[in-house]
Amino acid sequence: MSVLIFKVILIVIIFLISLGLAAYATYGERKVAAFLQDRIGPDRAGPFGLLQPIADGVKMFLKEEIIPTVSDKFLFILGPSLFMVTALMTSAVIPWGTPMEFGGVTYHLQVADINIGILYVLGVVSLGVYGIMLGGWSSNNKYALLGAIRASSQMISYELAMGMSVIAVLLISDGSLSLNAIVEGQKGLNWNVFYQPLAALIFIITAFAECNRTPFDLPESESELIGGYHTEYSSMKLGLYLFAEYINMFISSAIISSLFFGGYNFPGLEYLQTVLPTNLVSLISFGAFFTKILFFIFFFMWVRWTIPRFRYDQLMRLGWQVLMPLAIINVLITGAVVTFFGN
């Protein structure tokens, strides 16, 4: 029973971190953009503009809610809700740090250590496509529909290469889909990225495409499609779409870190475990994991303000004719190496 209470506390903490981080990622995005373009960025609301995300949130809540008369009202509301729920669900299988201990009972810093781990992530992420498709279709607006079709077509195309790149990681790890086991297998600096650099690169690129981030933000390319699939949305329904995108970015960064960059592992963790109390080490490992996540979020922003958007045919060619074959070849080569030169 106490395990369940711990899980509930953990769920709430991770939920709050997701929301807080997503809110401040919008601020970070604007500050990074300003830095890269030699501007100052938001600096009016509070010291250094730190209250800007809160001001934006309040503004979103106080805007008028518009639902076009020709739209399908139920699906129109369901779209952003589904998108947000799936974004908040993915974090369940991520291991956040080494186990904690209270009164002789060990608690894993992971909401659910299920043995289908990474499959759960891929499954929930692909449900997110429904959120976009429902929103775009129900709007009954040509721009929204085009944006939604583009988005779903792009997301399903890149999912294939993503799934393939994960298989290469499974081949070199000890044969478990559980993210906890995958992270445990990367102790010290024994990170998967050094054994599977190509898989890591493919996974990062596909993660950008799944999050609809530049250079893959064609679903909402404003010069052709106004706002893409959320053209008709206003008030907090638009807020949920935008917010969920930042949560997806956070979760993607967490999954990239756990699959390829050692998760909460860092050189010297074993040594610290022998000299420091368990719970302190747990917090330190959580800090290490979080540093990696923040780096990848910064990386997402860095790319956004550096690389221009692809054309749609280029995007599809990259997904199907470059990343797919590369991922398949990578799986075959990894399989051959492990079979004939393993151990």
Binding site: L4, K7, V8, I11, V12, F15, L19, M60, F61, K63, E65, I77, S81, M84, V85, L88, M89, S91, A92, V111, A112, I114, Y120, S235, M236, K237, G239, L240
Partner: peptide
């Protein structure tokens, strides 16, 4: 899986509250 279900309830709760408030 109970934990995943609880997470689902938390997520749903947040979304529904947001929708109603806005």
């Amino acid at each position: 899986y109970t934990a995943i279900f609880i997470q689902f309830i938390v997520a749903m709760g947040f979304v529904v509250t947001t929708m109603v408030v806005s």
